[in-house]
Amino acid sequence: MERPAAPSKTRPGEEPQAYLRRHLRFGWWSLLIFLTLGIVLESLHGFKVGAYLNVSNSTRRLLWTLAHAHGTALALVHIAFGVTASYLTGWVGRTRTFASMSLMAASVLLPGGFFLGGLVIYAGDPGIGILLVPLGAIFLFLAVLLCARATKGSHFTERRK
């Protein structure tokens, strides 16, 4: 007698293609957002806006530059994550979901924290937004760690041509 097929371990929305779509969407949209921020920052330079360029606002300039740089870099990481996840078809379960969520959280908290920290500054001190940055850094660390661990050979499968 033929045994009934075992239930799939992959829940709906958890297939590699779903990860690919989700992270590509997140990555490209956030790249657009932070590219726009870059254009805004360039304009602040062009028009010599004191709130951004005066020496007394150097903390803001630093933090907004960091927001732009981290946001842009993380957008690219999302694209890379999506593509990676589509290759690692053997990587399923909670760790993959957690890595994906962590990367999303890091992409909000890191650049967002830098930006908010620079929005309200107190002489050389940033605003409270800066405290989101270490949280974001923890999430990013975990996401990258999990992704790195998932690249072991058994998770790779032949992709359909």
Binding site: A105, A106, V108, L109, G112, L116, G129, L132
Partner: peptide, 13 residues
């Protein structure tokens, strides 16, 4: 500042 802090934190979590 606080409002944005909460919003970002909630959005992350």
């Amino acid at each position: 500042e606080w409002l944005l802090f909460f919003a970002l934190l909630a959005f992350g979590v």
